[in-house]
Amino acid sequence: MIFSSTSSLEGRKIIKYYGIVTGESLIGANVYKDLFSGVRDVVGGRTSKYEEEIQQARALAIKSMEEKAKELGANAIIGLKMDYSNLGGTMGNTILITSYGTAVRFEK
């Protein structure tokens, strides 16, 4: 599966457009993680636990999108977009990660 944020795939001919595929994941259900990242916010330093969580959540969103594209019969996703939305509002501990793109089939 090729992932590309471009509108086309250089040197490859797209033979079918399947339409939009999406993947979502969420961060925010771990109070212990919040506690220690809060402490690190005070004392400084990298909140590596959060970084790890974000990486995992991003991978999950992309995997979910990829599975949907495979089900449709696509072998690439073009026009790929990723978005991070803070849903926590004033509380600010919930992040929604979304990825979406156009599932296509190109000639190999």
Binding site: S7, S8, I14, Y18, G19, I78, G79, L80, K81, G101
Partner: peptide
């Protein structure tokens, strides 16, 4: 499924080969 409404949704701004 969003692709079952009979509309082709493309996230790219420049449709290629269409």
């Amino acid at each position: 499924n969003p692709n079952e409404h009979g509309i082709l949704f493309l996230t790219s701004a420049e449709p290629y080969q269409i």
